[in-house]
Simulated scan of single mutants.
Amino acid sequence: MKTITDQIGREVSILKPLKRIVSLVPSQTELLVDLGLENYIVGVTKFCVHPVHIKSVKETVGGTKNIKIEKIKELKPDIILCNKEENTKEIVEACERIAPTHVSDIYTLKDVKDLIIQYGELFSCRTESKRIIEKLQFKTNSFKEFISNQPQKKVAYFIWRNPWMVAGNNNFINHILELNNFKNIYGNKPRYPEIELKKIRLEGDPELVLLSSEPYPFKEEHAFEIGRFTHHAKTVFVDGEMFSWYGSRLLKAFDYFKQLHQRI
């Protein structure tokens, strides 16, 4: 038996080799594939879109917030992978009754590296996890050198409309904004607060308004609607996966961020 402590402090006991994995977190599904574990994945969510073929070759077990628990049972997983933010406490508890369940909790790049190391231990792929971490460290160092020459800009990062919601503090998106030398005008608010557009100038008056591609499909009319309440802020549509997905997606994210700064 092997016991590992997951990222929310729970002890996860592993009684047998982990050959059947259900992943309820899109970014972690992508990480598993990049760790060479695709053949061990038996179930994914409908939001697991990377790699593009994954949903066509694996069983889909619902969404991240609405899982099909009976289908997961039928898959007879050796382990189920969850995330504190993506999945509810009730989902984690239901999964625990089926198989050992590991919960990640990601706020910083250090948390990402810790998760990759844990997966290396759990799935006996230490060489692959070390390789990804080394690449990630190289990309991070290169980006930090690049960003040191970029001026700080005040930003608002929108994730939803009706009601208007933004990224506040205490989440991975805010950490990524900080790495980009963006000052989040809503960094004094917790998590993902609802805001009033008419107060955006009073609450920080951003130079940049970033409209995420997920979870809400923002369009030009939404950019115009927000722009009416700012003082000549530039609105930029951004790839939400690059700001909110962790794991191996970050190997592509830092090149994307360089391109983003060059166009703003």
Rank of each mutant, 00 (worst) to 15 (best):
I91W: 01
E85M: 06
A99L: 13
I80L: 09
G63C: 01
K89A: 14
T60Q: 12
E59L: 03
G63N: 01
H102D: 07
H53I: 03
K113N: 08
I98T: 06
K58I: 00
D114W: 08
K76C: 09
T108R: 03
E90R: 09
T127S: 14
R126W: 09
I72D: 04
E93K: 12
T108I: 04
F123W: 05
K76Y: 11
T64Q: 03
S104A: 14
V49E: 11
N83L: 02
T127R: 14
N66L: 11
K73E: 09
L109F: 15
E90K: 11
T101W: 12
N87G: 06
V103Y: 07
E121R: 10
K130W: 02
E134A: 10
V112P: 00
Y119L: 05
V92I: 14
E121F: 05
S104Y: 08
P51N: 14
H102K: 13
H50P: 00
T88P: 09
T88Q: 12
E86N: 08
K89D: 15
K73P: 03
I72V: 12
V57G: 00
C95L: 13
E74K: 14
A99I: 11
T127M: 13
I79S: 09
N66F: 10
E59A: 14
E59W: 00
I106E: 01
E121N: 11
P100D: 10
P100L: 10
E74R: 10
K58L: 04
S124H: 14
T60Y: 01
F47C: 01
H102Y: 15
I106T: 07
G120N: 09
T64F: 06
S124V: 11
K76H: 14
K68R: 13
G63F: 00
G62I: 02
N66Q: 14
S56C: 08
I133R: 02
N87C: 12
E90G: 06
I91C: 07
S124E: 14
E128F: 01
P77Y: 04
R97F: 03
E93M: 07
H53L: 02
V49C: 11
G62N: 06
T88W: 12
G120Q: 10
A99Y: 06
P100Y: 09
I106D: 01
T64Y: 01
C82N: 05
V112I: 07
T64K: 03
H50I: 00
V57Q: 02
V52Q: 03
E86M: 02
S56R: 09
E74L: 13
E90D: 15
V52S: 02
R126E: 15
G63K: 00
I69F: 07
E59V: 09
V57Y: 02
Q118Y: 04
L109K: 04
Y107L: 12
K65S: 12
Y107K: 13
D105N: 15
G62K: 00
V92M: 09
N87T: 06
K89N: 15
P51Q: 07
N87Q: 13
A94M: 12
E134Q: 10
T101S: 12
T108V: 08
I133D: 02
G62Q: 07
I91G: 00
K71I: 11
E90C: 08
E86C: 03
E93G: 02
E70G: 04
E93V: 04
D105K: 13
